[in-house]
C-alpha cells in the first residue's frame, strides 16, 4: 500500500492545490471551468446505442439507513375515492382529478444521491474563492456558491473506474483506501485515461452491499473511499467532478483535524464538485457487459435558490 500523505501535507494542499482566483475573482464554477464546449460535443459523440442508465438511489419515506431525517411526502390532493362513481359526483363535473404533494428531505448525508455545491463546506471560515462562511445564513441560505451555479447542468464524458472489480472483491475493505495508483491501474484495465473536463465515478462496491442488505444496511460504519493522495492527481488531470458509491472520503480517514480531506480540500480549495452516494451497480454491470467504461454523462440540479447542493439523478448514456 502506498504511504498516505501526512496531515501537514494535506493542510499545505489548501494552498498548493488552490484554484482561488484562477478563473477570476467571482468564479462560481471551480473545477467545472475545465469543461469546454468542445468537450461537451465530443462527449455527445460517445452515444451510440441510445441506452441511458441512472446513477441514483430511489428516495424513500420512512427511516432509511444513512438518512439524516426521514424524507417527507405529504399529499395535498390525491385520487382516493375518485374511482368511485358516487364520490366523483361530489367534485362538480367529476371527470377530472389530480394529485399534488409537498416533498422535503435532507439530501446531505449517506443516503440520498446528491451534489455538493461549493457553499457546502468551510475551512477557516471561508468558502471556495475566499468568500466568508457567514454568507450562508439561516434567513437567506447560501448567498454565494449555491447550486444555481450549475443551472445549465453538466454534460461531459463520464468514466467509471471500478476498484472493487480491480481488486476482485464484492466490496472494498474499509481500511483499503483508493490511491492514485489504483485509479491508474483501473484506467489501464478499462482502457481509458481520465482527462480534463471528465466526471470520474469510482466504485467501491458499497452500493452492492446496500442493495443486498436493504433496510438492514448499516451506513454508520467505516467505509473505503478516495485516499487524500488522490487530490493532486485529480487536480493534475483536470477532473471537473467526482462521484462514488460512498461519500468520497474514507471513514475513518486516518486524519484528526482534516477528517474529510477530499471534501475539505476538494470543495474549499479546488472548487471540486462532488456527487455523494451514487448507485453505480447498474452502471458497472453495463460497463462490464459492454467492456466500455466511458459514456456521456448528464446531471442537472434543481434550481433552488440558496441551497448548498441538490438531490440529483446522474445519467450515463451509451
Amino acid at each position: 500500500m502506498p504511504t498516505p500523505p501526512s496531515e501537514e501535507q494535506i493542510i499545505d494542499w489548501f494552498e498548493d492545490l488552490s484554484n482561488w482566483g484562477r478563473w477570476g475573482d467571482d468564479d462560481r464554477l471551480g473545477t467545472l471551468n475545465h469543461l469546454t464546449a468542445a468537450k461537451r460535443i465530443s462527449a455527445a459523440k460517445l452515444v451510440r446505442e441510445g441506452l441511458s442508465i441512472s446513477c441514483s438511489w430511489d428516495i424513500r419515506t420512512g427511516q432509511q439507513p444513512g438518512a439524516t431525517v426521514e424524507s417527507q411526502r405529504y399529499m395535498l390532493s390525491t385520487g382516493l375515492g375518485l374511482d368511485e362513481e358516487g364520490r366523483r359526483g361530489l367534485m362538480g363535473g367529476g371527470r377530472a382529478g389530480g394529485a399534488q404533494e409537498f416533498i422535503g428531505m435532507v439530501f446531505h448525508g449517506l443516503d440520498v444521491t446528491h451534489l455538493d455545491s461549493l457553499a457546502h463546506l468551510f475551512w477557516d471560515g471561508k468558502m471556495y474563492g475566499g468568500a466568508p462562511s457567514s454568507l450562508v445564513s439561516d434567513r437567506q441560505g447560501a448567498l454565494k456558491h449555491d447550486v444555481l451555479a450549475l443551472r445549465d447542468g453538466v454534460t461531459t464524458r463520464g468514466v467509471l473506474l471500478d476498484i472493487a472489480r480491480l481488486r476482485g472483491v464484492e466490496v472494498l475493505d474499509p481500511a483499503d483506501h483508493i490511491y492514485p495508483e489504483d485509479l491508474e491501474a483501473a484506467e489501464e484495465a478499462a482502457g481509458v485515461r481520465c482527462e480534463a473536463g471528465d466526471v470520474l465515478l469510482v466504485r467501491t462496491g458499497e452500493g452492492g452491499a446496500r442493495l443486498r442488505e436493504k433496510k438492514k444496511y448499516n451506513a454508520n460504519k467505516p467505509r473505503s473511499g478516495y485516499q487524500a493522495a488522490c487530490l493532486p492527481w485529480l487536480a493534475e488531470r483536470g477532473i471537473s467532478m467526482i462521484g462514488s458509491d460512498v461519500a468520497q472520503d474514507p471513514t475513518p480517514s486516518g486524519y484528526k483535524n482534516v477528517s474529510m480531506p477530499i471534501h475539505m480540500v476538494g470543495i474549499v480549495a479546488m472548487g471540486l464538485w462532488l456527487i455523494d452516494n451514487c448507485q453505480l451497480e447498474d452502471l458497472a454491470e453495463a460497463c462490464s457487459e459492454k467492456d466500455r467504461w466511458e459514456f456521456q454523462f448528464m446531471l442537472s440540479p434543481i434550481r433552488f435558490q440558496g441551497v448548498t447542493g441538490s438531490p440529483v439523478n446522474p445519467l450515463a448514456i451509451f
Binding site: M1, P4, D173, A175, H177, P252, S253, G254, K256
Partner: peptide, 9 residues
Amino acid sequence: EANSQTIEI
C-alpha cells in the same frame, strides 16, 4: 486484520 490507519479523537 490490522491496518496502518489510526483514529485520534
